[in-house]
């Protein structure tokens, strides 16, 4: 464990890719033994933060310390103390589960790892498939194998990049249980990124909301949710509507537009909805969506947009093509 009680700390952390500012002066402290979530849309800079904290990518400006070691000055010591679970599940499909563990042990320079590997395979219920090539594993098994690899060298911190992206609800639920179990049973600090609100809410002790490379809010899920006590109503109409008309509706405290969609901040959706229908009856309401206070409404409140409508830059392309290649393979 790192000495000062922080598994990760960063000051003014900044990463540029040519002219693109992927991470913009981020400060953070993640306590030992906690589960910290980085919540944000695709392309917000979540993966880049993992890359710079694990020494995979250089820091442009600022500093970061992971497991008590400076990421820039001492990356090899950081790498001995962190595990990594990729968004797209990266294993060597030509090797068996046991061979993947063997390779991980070699790369982490472990001298005595077989007993721990055996127990990890037992824990993740993979023992009976240990000799099979991981290319034949199901998606859930591959994810579990990846977490076993990440835990083999007894890391202090596990970085999980969108651990449940693209998984069906059952596998996602199983992974949530596993992530909680890994944190509690093995005392490992978990740093995860996600763009699923419910995931951050269910798993994380603390959450940072990131947008365009900046932390826009940090706190426990309940602290963040308490920032926004009002409901949000999202409306799409077939006819143009003016801001004044929407602001005049009783109970509407704030109006923002996002393309053809309006986002109204209201005291109580139940009370205001009939007023909206009355006011907009001639404007052709095409779609209406109500958000009760949640991390989603916090995100809308801070950024003025929904999580699933944000972002979309270079990182998205990379992930998309990575998944496409995997599917073709």
């Amino acid at each position: 464990m790192s000495g000062n009680g922080w598994a990760i700390s960063a000051h003014g952390l900044t990463k540029h890719y040519d002219k693109l500012v992927a991470v913009d002066h981020v400060d953070m402290s993640v306590a030992n033994g906690s589960v910290f979530g980085l919540l944000g849309p695709n392309g917000a800079g979540k993966t880049t933060i993992i890359k710079v904290l694990t020494g995979l990518s250089d820091i442009t400006e600022g500093s970061a310390s992971v497991a008590g070691f400076d990421v820039t000055k001492d990356p090899m010591h950081v790498k001995q103390r962190v595990g990594w679970v990729a968004a797209e599940v990266i294993l060597d499909d030509d090797l068996s589960g046991w061979e993947n563990l063997w390779l991980q042990a070699k790369l982490q320079r472990l001298g005595d790892w077989k007993e721990r590997a055996d127990r990890l395979l037992d824990y993740f219920e993979l023992s009976d498939r240990r000799k099979d090539r991981v290319g034949t594993y199901s998606t859930g098994m591959r994810k579990k194998m990846e977490i076993a690899l990440a835990l083999l060298h007894q890391p202090e911190i596990i970085f999980m990049d969108e651990p449940t992206i693209g998984l069906d609800p059952n596998v996602r639920r199983m992974l949530w249980d596993l992530i909680t179990g890994v944190n509690k049973q093995f005392g490992v600090t978990v740093f995860l990124t996600t763009h699923y609100m419910e995931e951050a809410d269910a798993l994380c002790g603390r959450v940072a909301i990131i947008d365009h490379g900046k932390f826009v809010a940090v706190g426990t899920p309940s602290e963040l949710k308490s920032r926004v006590k009002e409901d949000f109503i999202e409306i799409e109409t077939s006819e143009p509507v003016t801001v004044d008309k929407l602001q005049a509706i009783p109970g509407v405290s704030n109006v923002r537009s996002q393309g053809n969609t309006w986002i109204l901040r209201v005291s109580s959706a139940e009370v205001v909805l009939p007023e909206i229908f009355r006011a907009l009856q001639t404007d052709g309401i095409r779609r209406i969506n109500v958000e009760k206070p949640s991390l989603e409404t916090v995100f809308i409140d801070i950024t003025g947009k929904r999580l699933d409508q944000s972002g979309g830059d270079v990182q998205d392309y990379r992930k998309f093509y990575m998944n496409l290649r995997r599917a073709r393979r």
């Binding site: 010591h77 001995q80 990594w84 990729a86 393979r329």
Partner: peptide, 11 residues
């Protein structure tokens, strides 16, 4: 396929 990341995230 990302395996280089898996290698280089180790020491």
């Amino acid at each position: 396929f990302g395996f280089m990341k898996r290698i280089l995230i180790t020491p």
